[in-house]
Design a protein around this nucleic acid. Structure first.
Lengths: 324, 324
DNA sequence: GCCCTCTGGTTAATCGTTAAATCAGGGGGC
DNA sequence: GCCCCCTGATTTAACGATTAACCAGAGGGC
């Protein structure tokens, strides 16, 4: 409602002076500044984003492209992102790429058309986001050359593998959802790299993988490591119908520490992402990029954290190997 | 990059003509329109949102205020909202009210400052959103006088109560998370209203409620109805430690059909919201409001859907009452 | 032949903010 | 007393799109 012009008229100065007074940029005497500030406050002045954006070419808005907004991690990312964003006076415009790479490009384009200053993209599994005319921060995984920040999925895999190994398991099944996903591949890479040669490990993928992994329990597998809590929940459910108990017959682990992990039965051992750090850093990185600088931590990963709960326990059939 | 001015210069007409040609508004001959369209296409012309917003006073952006972005329903709402929004050429700016009413007001203010054309608010439990200078659509529940659209939570409660009753349960415990939540109160209202007089029902709330509800099983309660899947999952977990099986000893129901409901064990009987319809209608309502009209369905609720899974079964201790 | 209308445009103002360029006037250096 | 610089402003132009108002010329009615 109230514009610079109105304030200028009321105080009896030019709009430029009002602009300067409020932004603290030009040269304005202290008394005039006070006068203007007071009047602006009274009138409830709020600068017009549109006008500022038009003039400066910066909208103060960031675009967030998520592969699928129903991704269970999205809420936490969105929340932290939105909080971190308004600390930096930025807004967040969302777009859903609906599971298809084409839509991902469309989503990027739509956000660009709206004049966002930067883009934060969590790419579809196995895809690379389009190059864009504004700075972009990619949240994916270390293996992605475009990755700006992400959890250390390889390290997370290592954590859970070491844990399982430490509590004496010598034959494990590793279960991934979709081999196209770099994130999942990295998690599994971390697991297999870390397991010592005397531990037998077999990797399974996809829907068939679930039953195959479970069959392995018959032949001595004492632990199933999955790349996602959702997958672990499914395994848990199928183990139950097969009359196999967790962790009695087999230990089970997930990934991401989703909402249900602590309250399912048994509570699920999993690996948590430091979503807050990732989101905050993403905002930081994109802000520095927008300013034309380079962020020292760009491309670095954020450590994951092992959350040990009741779904993993000491392997009965083996002696415990003590951590060195 | 390319502006109306540039196109105008290249084609040799005025910017007004270009504007008219592209928007189809003024009077421009067909050949000139074609010429301009072609040139615009070639130059990759994209209208500046900022300029348009400044001139017209409409930004084409909607603000979405969520009580807590980690709310498990948020992703689906956000997704559908974002899809429905871009069908209407609108963008969605998110804000998180972080669990506090103050932050809710702050969030509204921030979005308003960014010049949104309308606000979609899912209020904090037990709060009323601030009146705002732009049209607002509230997604809450029927009992809220400001409600613009929402699931029929009362009806949902009725559905699950009727189901439980139909399969022969005569003593049930009803468990809510937070009595401040109008949504949860409505769900419970629907349940209690629907249960016939010969069914004993007791209502419990909050953390203590979980254990109290479970104690009831000792004294003949054969079903526990909760107001949320998350709550049901916790109950399920505690029942397990108490050596009580679902649905063997007790039937269990949730609400909202969250991601884990179908894959937990036993799969959870629950009541699903038609989130798509709600979100689509919210966008519709806010769009009509922005145009200054009134939406015929404003304030109406959307039916819920009962999803029967394995967590509910015929009460052993009673004869089944057949649905009429 | 005069007036009116219709077509296909153009001009110019405006939205609110920013920023470069300009300017008036006082004070100090020498 | 002249020149320069500094302070505290003001003017002016511009960002890109929209839109009301205006205008030239063709064609038709009578």
């Amino acid at each position: 409602m109230a514009s610079l012009k109105k304030i200028a008229a009321e105080v009896g100065v030019s709009t430029a002076t009002v602009s300067n007074a409020l932004s603290g940029k030009g040269r304005v005497s202290q008394e005039v500044v006070d006068l203007i500030r007071a009047r602006a406050e009274e009138l409830g002045y709020r600068p017009s984003n549109a006008a500022r954006a038009l003039k400066t070419g910066q909208s103060g808005i960031l675009g967030l492209v998520m592969p699928d907004l129903t991704n269970p991690l999205f809420p936490r990312i969105a929340q932290t992102l939105s909080i971190a964003a308004d600390k930096n006076q930025l807004g967040i415009l969302i777009a859903d790429s609906r599971g298809s790479p084409d839509e991902q490009s469309e989503a990027q384009r739509r956000l660009l058309d709206r004049g966002v200053d930067g883009l934060i993209v969590v790419p579809q599994r196995g895809t690379t986001p389009d190059a864009s005319s504004v700075p972009m921060a990619v949240i994916n995984t270390d293996a992605d050359p475009l990755n700006s920040v992400s959890a250390d999925h390889v390290g997370g895999g290592a954590l859970v593998a070491r844990h399982i190994c430490d509590i004496g398991h010598r034959k494990v099944a590793i279960l991934g959802g979709d081999p196209v996903s770099e994130v999942q591949r990295d998690r599994i890479k971390g697991m297999t790299e870390t397991l010592p040669p005397d531990v037998q490990a077999q990797v399974f993928w996809g829907d068939d993988g679930v039953s195959h992994a479970i069959e392995q329990v018959q032949s001595g597998t004492t632990a199933i490591l999955t790349t996602s809590d959702l997958l672990a929940l499914r395994v848990r459910s199928e183990l139950m119908t097969a009359q196999l108990s967790v962790p009695g017959h087999v230990s089970l682990t997930g990934f991401d520490d989703m909402s249900f992990a602590p309250i399912m039965h048994p509570a699920l051992t999993t690996v948590a992402q430091n979503v807050e750090e990732i989101a905050t850093r993403a905002i930081d990185i994109i802000s520095t990029k927008i300013r034309g600088e380079t962020h020292p931590l760009e491309g670095r990963t954020v450590p994951m954290r092992l959350v040990i709960r009741q779904s993993t326990t000491i392997a009965k059939t083996a002696t415990r190997r003590l951590p060195k």
